[in-house]
Design a protein around this nucleic acid. Structure first.
Lengths: 253, 253
DNA sequence: CTCTGTGAAGTCATTCACAGCG
DNA sequence: CGCTGTGAATGACTTCACAGAG
């Protein structure tokens, strides 16, 4: 099957294993790093050198990549431009995504203006709200139109939106998610601090600021500030650091 | 040791095990739920009933709580108000925290106005920037003062800030983190899309929107949209759902 | 008889360690 | 000889299953 390796679709099907979200998150991080290396004119990099950037194990990187093919060259490492292209395809970032944001509050507005999206081939195509004051207006430098939430399905279709961001108050979030799912959306990034129920085939990723902060609070309340184990992998920020230690890394993807 | 159980400090020291961040994140979620139950006038709840709220295993909840003491009553469950108080203490949310935000851009401003913080005993006490235009001003409804980043250490001391939020561009983040650490801060929430190096005893939690979105993109690019395994625990949003299934949950703490 | 608390088993992720390619 | 790719070993987290308290 080696000769099929460079097909984006086949890459993904090569092994029937399911890929953990931990792996895809790391791929995203590797990609960011590879882009920087490429911009710096660096041509090749070993898994060891790449691992040092994030304080993770080089075997982890090789394993992550190994799920999708054999991209390295023994005795050399990985060609930066080549690996970058592969990961871009693996993550589906070679084709553009269009994003809709529900909630034109402060967070929604900040996200609508977030420039980091464009770099990954994401474009914010529409914002939705239920506030008559905001509907019909435009926000941000890009003058993105604010639509009535009732027009969700219609606008999603017209604008070919495939990813939705939920930035509404907690009590409205499930209702909004239901509407979003009805409109056929399969990927949702949720900022409302609630546990949402999604249906099969719909991926909801929640970013919960309250939980993040409260978790930090627990850490602060620990006597020595060293009684928290890391969630896994990377981010061995504190104690329990093995032999090598040149400064800990903070991740939490 | 049972008679010491109700001391906040002892609670934390009871077992010498290290507590995973996965556990503390879930505690935060339980707490939110308990607050809602309390407000709804519900007096007791079993681990089974609580688990159903998040589609996680009831043993998981009992285990999480078990690290800190025995809070339940056999045959009955947990007293809502009682458990709420315990978790509040465990997470260190019984004493207030003061938050500083570096970066008065859109995200920093949105965060400065985020009301969700107050509920958990967090107060945003100061914002920092390096833009002369912004320094000396005040932002948000609460009119929080914007300080020069050069005054970081001084203001942190004066305002008794113990948690810092980094909301600056990626290339400035490490420098800011270094300053923040020098000022003695032990807990940092980072929104810059970079892997930061922290020193021992300093906890950095990164919220990386790009990585979250790119991870969603991978999911979208999967043929059947069912080839992604869950990170662990909850959030068994798709396929591979065991026997019971009344609708999947989306977490990802 | 119900529901907690917890060892034991099971599942999944990371790290080790090395064969073997370039 | 260096570095990848990968089975095997280790470690972490979750779920099972049940003794025993109320």
């Amino acid at each position: 099957m080696t000769y099929l390796r460079y097909s984006a679709i086949l890459t993904v099907l090569m092994k029937s294993e399911k890929i953990s979200e931990l792996t895809t998150s790391r791929l995203s991080v590797y990609l960011r790093c590879l882009n920087a290396l490429h911009a710096a004119g660096i041509k090749t990099i070993s898994s060891q050198a790449l691992a040092e950037q994030f304080n993770l194990n080089s075997a982890q990187i090789r394993k992550d990549l190994g799920y999708f093919g054999e991209f390295g060259v023994r005795g050399v490492g990985y060609y930066v431009a080549d690996l970058r292209d592969h990961i871009t395809k693996i993550l589906g970032l070679d084709s553009p995504h269009r994003v809709g944001i529900v909630g034109a509050g402060r967070l929604g507005t900040a996200l609508a203006n977030y420039n980091g999206f464009a770099r990954s081939n994401f474009t914010v195509a529409a914002v939705f709200d239920n506030d008559r004051q905001k509907i019909g207006g435009r926000i941000g430098d890009a003058k993105i139109a604010v639509h009535d939430v009732d027009q969700l399905a219609k606008v999603i279709r017209e604008e070919s939106i495939d990813v939705m961001v939920i930035a509404v108050p907690a009590k409205a979030a499930q209702r909004v998610l239901n509407q979003v799912m009805s409109a056929g959306i399969k990927a949702v990034l949720n900022f409302a601090p609630v546990s949402l129920t999604s249906r099969r085939g719909v991926k909801v990723k929640t970013v919960d600021l309250t939980t993040s902060l409260e978790s930090l609070s627990y850490f602060l309340s620990q006597p020595s500030s060293v009684a928290v184990t890391q969630p896994r992998s990377h981010s061995r920020s504190e104690e329990s650091f093995p032999q090598r230690r040149k400064g800990a890394k903070a991740e939490n993807l």
